[in-house]
Design a protein around this nucleic acid. Structure first.
Lengths: 107, 107
DNA sequence: ATTATACATCAATAGCCATTTATGTGTCAA
DNA sequence: TTGACACATAAATGGCTATTGATGTATAAT
């Protein structure tokens, strides 16, 4: 039985890294309701504009969000596929009741 | 409607950070089958012993794993509660079909 | 054309993190 | 008690990362 996420550990690593910052988790929470304009995020998060732009780029590079330009505004939204992949990774745990949970080495 | 994970963004940030390393993701994969001795992990992962110990400590400090000492061996296992919390965070996404997914600012 | 707006990018810096090498601590065997 | 074993910790280092301030770019309004 092969590990669940073996095929793309590198990509998942980058996605977890993109989530390893409290400001970016707050961005995720704001985007749960759907697509948001950067100006909305600027108002909601007390971040400087360049810093917010940096965090959004970080999340975009990791594939966590997608962006859309319209006029002079930019809209960001969560990428459901990425989150589904992460959900699969963190969700694939054994039942704690199974006997194979007890190590049998070094006995 | 408040954000899903607002109550503990700091803890979740630390857990995601602990997962933002490929070596540690491989450790998670190895622990999916249940508790493992450090010596087993040493054999399976091509890491030096101090480096593996560092990664295990990082995950333990984040609450992702628990450890148990027996004689001169140490056993590590995933902490299901932590992973359940992370699963809730990455899983709480809106359906992409809902109309509220379209930003209505800056229109 | 000029100016303001919305956002991205650049340059610089300070702090953190992964890795290595060396050393320490506790446990078991002889 | 001496030595080997399993694991943790300390110290040092190089690379990455978050943040700031300044500048660039495209769009829209006047």
């Amino acid at each position: 039985m092969s590990p669940v996420a073996a095929p793309d550990l590198t990509g998942i690593t980058r996605q977890f890294r993109a989530l390893s910052d409290e400001n970016r988790l707050r961005i995720v929470d704001l985007l749960r309701g759907g697509e948001r304009c950067v100006c909305e995020l600027t108002d909601a998060l007390d971040l400087s504009q360049p810093l917010l732009s940096f965090h959004l780029k970080t999340m975009k590079d990791a594939g966590l969000v997608v962006d859309r330009r319209q006029g002079r505004w930019a809209y960001y939204a969560l990428n459901p596929e990425a989150f589904a992949q992460l959900e699969e990774f963190v969700g694939a745990l054994p039942s704690t009741k199974l006997s194979l949970n007890v190590a049998r080495c070094c006995g």
